[in-house]
Design a binder for these strands. Structure first.
Lengths: 231, 231
DNA sequence: GACCTACAGTTGACGCTGTCTACTACAGGA
DNA sequence: TCCTGTAGTAGACAGCGTCAACTGTAGGTC
């Protein structure tokens, strides 16, 4: 050990720690490799010996954030009843987002640095998602809709709620949201999700678009919207 | 008209247009006042005569993005049945997010420039939210839970789905999501939301401590061991 | 018409950033 | 002993936001 000769025992690790600290106070756009170097008392080029670019350091930081997030979800109080467990999961999810809003935004709110170029980051992300999927699968309902679709549903709802909370949705919604709405929102929405998962998936929800040939009526607008697969 | 003496007929407006164009291709972090000025053939300081800082131009751009978003939602195909109408709303919502991912991210994914400092921006944002709330209220269900809570629920779900779609959730979730999952996700999730809104709001969802009077199936056992750690 | 002021534009400078290049000093193996 | 790789340094460059000072014109007032 002790390969490095100067002041930093482990510069790559120290860079990640400082980057996380900067992001926690200033947000991701406040992160600069020069500031990291300054805080560590090394030259402005030292971090580049370990991270080829700002993006690479950021990818490492995002991976850590995902890992911490997954650990937080994993450390939630466990319940026997799978729906209660899902409720705990939701509470833990929102709790983390509110406790570390800038880290949360880092994971889900910023254009990730080229996901496929940073497999370690993606591995941590998919682990966090796996926790959620497992909680869904554990519901073990008799109607067997694709559990990954419900995992997406729960994930989307949790994430949306987290972001709206962080954004202080009442401000966004103007005077339309009475005071205290956000406090009630988490249990209300988790209850809604529970109801949604309890009621059986009905065929109608596969939607007019998925239904191939029959009854093409006045939905041509939707079809036009769908044709460009993305963007 | 024609107050300006040089090449730009309406520099403030032209700045917003160029900023939107830059964001649509490079994302919000690619926006620079100097690039805007360069594209307009004016000096790098000209935009500052109309926008005191980058933040102020960004706030104007966000306001336009919200206005365009609201217009898109408003232009959706209308349905008599309020649930069908909500479905159209969801489709329009996701359609916009996928068609203009960087503009969508601009609205919901970036730290907004000091919301309370830019009232015009907030006005556009709350208008978009109002469209959603109206669609919820129009459901006119007999159980009258706070409609704003359900509006938040729908908004959160739509937003979460939009972001997960933009982020290409299958990549995030690793190999766990079979191909084609995202295509099925929108109708599936909208169906789930419909189910959630159809089933009555039960008191149990107000928190873990409260009594759920009528469980659907075999999940009663869990209620007994639920501790009052509402956290 | 002469003058003044406000405004919309200009140029130049400052410190910040990421990143390229070149240099240095040490460790470890041949 | 020499060579090579590694982890650090220093300097330079262009691009960024923003501050300051300057310029030229439109419009109103004497």
């Amino acid at each position: 050990m002790a390969k490095s000769r100067f002041r930093q025992a482990n510069l790559p690790e120290a860079c990640v720690e400082q980057a996380l600290a900067i992001i926690a106070t200033d947000g991701v756009e406040g992160l600069s490799l020069r500031e990291v170097a300054r805080r560590l008392g090394v030259s402005h080029q030292a971090p580049y010996k370990h991270y080829p670019s700002r993006e690479h350091l950021l990818a490492e930081v995002v991976a850590r954030a995902f890992a911490a997030f997954a650990a937080h979800l994993d450390a939630r109080p466990r319940r026997r009843d799978p729906y209660d467990d899902l409720r705990e999961m939701g509470r833990a999810y929102i709790g983390y987002a509110l406790a570390h809003p800038l880290h949360y935004r880092l994971m889900f709110g910023t254009p990730l640095p080229e996901p496929e170029a940073h497999p370690a980051m993606m591995r941590q992300a998919s682990h966090a998602f796996a926790l959620l999927t497992d909680a869904i699968v554990r519901l073990g309902r008799d109607d067997p809709p694709a559990p990954e679709l419900d995992a997406l549903y729960v994930w989307a709802t949790m994430h949306g709620l987290a972001i709206l909370s962080i954004m202080k949705a009442p401000a966004l919604a103007g005077a339309r949201l009475p005071a205290g709405t956000m406090d009630k929102a988490v249990p209300h929405i988790i209850g809604r999700v529970r109801n949604a998962l309890l009621s059986p998936a009905e065929p109608g929800q596969q939607d007019a678009g998925a239904r191939p040939p029959a009854r093409r009526q006045k939905t041509q607008a939707a079809a036009a919207k769908r044709s460009p697969t993305t963007r």
